[in-house]
Design a protein around this nucleic acid. Structure first.
Lengths: 176, 176
DNA sequence: GAAAGATTGTTGTTGACGACAACAATTGAT
DNA sequence: ATCAATTGTTGTCGTCAACAACAATCTTTC
């Protein structure tokens, strides 16, 4: 598997002096490759997926940073929010609503239950399923999380603009 | 670590019939937890991160599906696009431009080099770095990838609307 | 009412991905 | 000449999506 490539650095006995033809970007600007910035992307701009990926990365990092003091990640926050708004929901229902695998939700609930934010109560009507509830501690914690999340949301507004954020939410409303 | 919870299913000798108080959603609608759909999210709507996450998931899945015949993932496509538009770039420059770790780029380039799409040419000016180029095969392949990516982009436009897509790209232009 | 099929929670594996730490080779600065 | 910084590489760790299997349980069907 490309071993001759991977070990090229260490097995580089004779390093041929291949001329680099002073690569000129397709957008017409020269790029020495040193700064790493101001490099043309060409076809990459205009791809929604690329912009969304970069934005999602930024927004998640800010969320994690803003909620670092309470050690809550975006997925955990979404789970607690849905349970808080719809107590008694089953794990399947939460997973389907949030678009996460039920296998993944198991671990998420494990960690939230360890911290006594959520409790799995056996359902009376269906002995397979659990009715998910927030504990008292979970409710007060979620209230604080929401305040911090609102602060994070202000960071987003500061980054892309208040009205652009509103527009974004409106455009992507069909995915929530 | 919550072992009493994890093994509750199997070690459930006596299952207490705990009453589920017919959970009523905060939005006022009852939710049996069976459908899993039409569940209130409350505070979750209005969170940009959540909408963006769901959208990013959808868009990546469609990208992978649309480019399944050529077995190219979004990150691979972005790497080839940048190299194609800026031949001779170093790995550091590409990594910095795309916002991916240089450690990660190593594996990406390994796979692309195995398939003879990209070649690492030793730089003449800096014997530490590699000048990245598309091979002939890589160039023709990228042309096909771009056609498929354009088809994927049409899927996006069909999903959120042509003008909304334009607006989205404009809003998130600061992240590209 | 019993058998067959579907559902729910769980465990496990796989792979992509971001983050971080170390390292050798090399370059640049002092 | 010496020390710090850079580049590619290797490795580990944790998150996450996707998938497959399984036991317990519910639902359907005969």
């Amino acid at each position: 598997m490309a071993s001759q490539q991977k070990t090229s650095r260490k097995a580089a006995g004779t390093r041929a002096a291949i001329r680099r033809p002073q690569a000129r970007a397709a957008n017409g600007r020269a790029n020495g490759g040193d700064t790493g910035d101001d490099i043309g992307l060409d076809a990459l701009v205009g791809h929604a997926g690329y912009a969304v990926r970069r934005f999602q990365l930024w927004i998640f990092q800010d969320f994690v940073k803003t909620l670092a003091t309470v050690d809550i990640r975006p997925t955990q926050y979404s789970v607690m929010t849905v349970i808080g708004a719809n107590p008694g929901l089953s794990q399947m229902a939460v997973a389907k609503r949030l678009g996460i695998e039920r296998a993944r939700l198991v671990h998420l609930l494990d960690s939230l239950e360890e911290r006594a934010f959520v409790s799995r109560i056996p359902s009376a009507t269906d002995r397979r399923s659990h009715a998910l509830h927030l504990t008292g501690r979970g409710k007060t914690a979620l209230a604080q999380f929401k305040r911090l999340a609102a602060e994070h949301e202000r960071h987003v507004a500061d980054k892309i603009g208040k009205e652009n954020r509103e527009r974004l939410l409106q455009i992507l409303a069909c995915f929530t």
